[in-house]
Design a protein around this nucleic acid. Structure first.
Lengths: 341, 341
DNA sequence: CTGTCGACCTAATGCGGATTAGGAAGAGGT
DNA sequence: ACCTCTTCCTAATCCGCATTAGGTCGACAG
């Protein structure tokens, strides 16, 4: 019994009265089929059409090593409902560009495996695809290390220097964007700006703080930074900052938006309004981004598309493409920042 | 030349002094390896460990005849940013349940093919997977017909009786839900309720109207229905309805939400407020669903999950599962409907 | 008439692992 | 010593496609 009811090349061959390799030549390589009679090609194509032939990606891959599938692996331990919103724009870009490049998407599901090392199995399955994109704030180092030891092309979405040149990535230029926002604020006349970040040491947070510091330094101002988990951000504390002379506060969007949310909540309870009583800027896109929020936007969609382009080039064997790219985040002047009073 | 530098079972076999099938037995099936001497197992395991063996998933799949891939094909171009919101909950359910069932998702991309019959090619590629889910308000009948002629298990998300029993589906019980909303309204005291639907003849719209009519009939009231494309829904018309004695208006959510939006816009311009001047209920989830909207919610996530369960059963060869299932939509009392004044 | 050269196609084989049929070797019974 | 079971492992194949090394046949030159 044939395991699959699908037609194979052998079926086409029988129907067209030729051999299986001939079918493979005709269907597979347009160029390689040069030396085959037009008539034969027509017969084979017709037979294939008639049977509704679709090459088996597994067999194709085993024999030749390519199947026009891009893997997409998302490291999300949390269940998707919430987090999804943040990832969605990436997916949009990825899907669009995959379509343009003629690839279909193979989504690997982290939560499908349980046990102490949930990613291990999936990282093996990943090799089904011609190459794989990775998405997620934190990534399991050991598994990724093993994967990088193979020759599977991989692109990570988000900056990640831990593996040096071995791991290609598409990131957002948080440092420049952060500095630009600071320049915008100082341009408005602010001189004491406080950066409120989360305790998390994710690379994005680190880069953003670096951007803040670099912007402040550039303007000859002292960088003031506090960390918060959200809970300790009380209305009193906010008022105290203001009384000390802070005129602008900068915060960051993360997967939880803890700092950003806490700040907004504290401001409301303290009856402080942006930008009347205090200026506010936010690095990145908080989930509930209000229309007029000052800050910068992460070009997620473009990042997704760029990642696909990079990956397809790697798959094609291009060794000259830059393996690390940082995309520019656009400054959003917004209305929550204004000259200090 | 060996394409990959990685060790294979044959290498282990050589090192351990056994045959490749023996290695396969020991490493592959814990149960099947019962009849193999402990000593041999130890040697093989050791050799595998020493060489750092990792099974090639591709070869595994080829030999096993199944690839644990579920296809997902979306008819509507998935990614104008807008549409995404409507489909996302389906995807969440699909992904969760796929994970639970041990499948990965293969997303086929409609826009990757151009030309007059964009779905034709993709519908062939779809057969790469062990089975496929389809999602979309309108589906190309001819292509689907061809696909159903094959033995590929297929599940459509959304009711669709055009193919009779040939096409399995998971739908939402719009008829019952619509009737329930009507009962809710009549329970509040409404007697003249107007259903404002779109001109579109999609099955969902048809079912919803049926639900409305059935609810009205059940309550012994006359069903009044108008169609709109949105543009002809003027403030004056709305006022006229009210003056004629209509106390409640029911509309529906679609991929464009044309009727729903137009109604809200007209009400605002007519300075009519819900539920003070008029009661409002909406069938389904408009994209900008406000918190207190009266109506019913489509259990999208559950539908996605149910579709995956159905599909995996079909793949497993289960011929007894019901091929058509309608899931219950929950009534949402909301606050845009109140007793008439 | 023979040799040569293309043009066109097929036989054979590999990819890496799963599966099935079956054989060799040793244990136990008579 | 002979036969029957077990126990444990291997030979042979298959999965579906790609690739390489020929092989056949007709045309055309010599």
């Amino acid at each position: 019994m044939r395991p699959s009811g699908r037609p194979r090349q052998a079926d086409i061959a029988r129907l067209a009265g030729v051999s299986q390799p001939t079918v493979s030549l005709i269907l597979g390589g347009g160029a390689a089929a040069m030396g085959i009679a037009q008539e034969t090609q027509r017969k084979v194509m017709e037979a294939a059409e008639q049977l509704g032939y679709v090459p088996d990606p597994i067999a194709t891959r085993l024999a030749a090593g390519q199947n026009n599938l891009l893997g997409l692996y998302t490291f999300t331990s949390t269940f998707p409902n919430e987090i999804s919103h943040a990832y969605y724009p990436f997916l949009v870009g990825i899907e669009e560009e995959s379509a343009a490049q003629g690839y279909d998407l193979l989504m690997f599901i982290a939560s499908s495996t349980t046990g102490e090392r949930p990613h291990a199995q999936v990282l093996n399955r990943v090799r089904l695809a011609d190459g794989c994109l990775f998405l997620g704030r934190h990534l399991p180092v050991r598994e990724m290390d093993r994967l990088l030891a193979t020759d599977l092309p991989v692109v990570y979405i988000g900056r990640h220097d831990e593996f040096g040149d071995r791991l290609a990535y598409i990131g957002a230029d948080y440092v420049s964007a952060g500095a630009a926002v600071v320049r915008h604020l100082t341009g408005l006349g602010h001189e004491r700006i406080l950066y409120v970040r989360e305790a998390d040491e994710a690379i994005t947070s680190v880069d953003r703080e670096a951007g803040f510091r670099s912007g402040m330094e550039e303007c000859g101002l002292a960088a003031e930074v506090v960390r918060t988990d959200g809970a300790d951000l009380t209305p009193d504390r906010l008022r105290a900052w203001r009384d000390q002379g802070i005129t602008a506060v900068v915060t960051e969007a993360t997967d939880t938006d803890a700092a950003h949310r806490a700040l907004l909540a504290a401001a409301e309870r303290a009856e402080l309004r942006f930008p009347d009583d205090l200026s506010l800027a936010t690095f990145g896109d908080p989930r509930d981004r209000a229309a007029g929020l000052t800050g910068f936007a992460v070009p997620r969609r473009e990042m997704g598309a760029a990642a696909v382009r990079l990956l397809t080039k790697l798959i094609a064997g291009d060794r000259t493409v830059p393996r690390h790219q940082l995309l520019t985040c656009e400054l959003e002047p917004g209305e929550t920042a204004a000259p200090p009073r």
